[in-house]
Simulated scan of single mutants.
Amino acid sequence: MNAQGHEKHHIDAPVLTRLGVGFACAVALILLLMALLWQHMVPRYPAVPAQQVPAPPRLQATPPADRAVLDRAQRQQLNSYGWVNQGSGVARIPIERAMQVLATQHDKAPASSGSAR
């Protein structure tokens, strides 16, 4: 403001230039400090040698065919006789035969005397 209380009509270029240069220097200094701090803050990991990199996953090439083979093997095991543990005398029998044996044992089981109707 001048002596009469009015605003100036011109811009003080040297003051504005010094202000711009000071602002640019402050931004540059802040960026430099951030870069220096970043170098100390980021952890440094050693490079992993090639022999320690895990192998890629081995995926099934033909899942439906693999499943069919597994189903056939399980069906064959369910429908055949064989030893589970021959040393202890544990064997497997076909599932149809096992259901017949269980049904026969259930028919021969005595009726429980605990329920009176």
Rank of each mutant, 00 (worst) to 15 (best):
M1K: 10
M1N: 09
M1D: 07
M1V: 07
N2L: 09
N2F: 07
A3F: 12
A3C: 12
Q4E: 07
Q4P: 00
H6G: 05
E7D: 12
E7L: 10
K8T: 11
K8G: 08
K8V: 10
K8H: 14
H10F: 15
I11T: 14
A13R: 15
A13E: 14
P14I: 09
V15A: 15
L16E: 15
T17Q: 09
R18Y: 09
L19S: 06
F23T: 08
A24D: 07
C25A: 14
A26H: 04
A28T: 10
L31H: 11
L31I: 12
L32D: 09
L33I: 15
L33G: 15
M34R: 12
M34W: 09
M34I: 11
A35H: 10
A35Y: 08
L36A: 15
L36Q: 13
L37A: 14
W38P: 00
W38E: 05
Q39M: 11
H40N: 13
M41S: 13
V42T: 11
P43R: 14
R44C: 08
R44V: 10
Y45H: 13
Y45F: 15
Y45E: 09
P46H: 06
A47R: 04
V48Q: 01
V48R: 02
Q51D: 03
Q51V: 02
Q52M: 13
Q52E: 14
Q52Y: 11
V53K: 06
P56Q: 04
R58S: 01
L59A: 08
Q60P: 00
A61R: 01
T62C: 02
T62E: 05
P63G: 00
A65Y: 00
A65H: 01
D66E: 09
R67Q: 08
R67F: 05
A68Y: 00
A68Q: 05
V69C: 05
L70I: 09
D71L: 06
D71C: 03
A73N: 04
Q74K: 15
R75Y: 02
R75N: 06
Q77H: 06
Q77L: 04
Q77F: 02
S80M: 08
S80E: 11
Y81N: 10
Y81K: 07
G82S: 01
G82N: 02
V84A: 05
N85A: 03
N85V: 02
Q86G: 03
G89I: 01
G89R: 01
G89C: 02
G89F: 00
V90H: 01
A91F: 06
A91V: 12
A91H: 05
I93L: 06
I93C: 02
P94C: 03
I95F: 07
E96M: 11
E96G: 11
R97W: 06
A98S: 07
A98Q: 10
L102D: 12
L102T: 12
A103Q: 14
Q105R: 09
D107W: 10
K108E: 05
K108Q: 08
A109V: 05
S112G: 10
G114S: 12
G114L: 14
A116L: 12
A116P: 00
R117F: 06
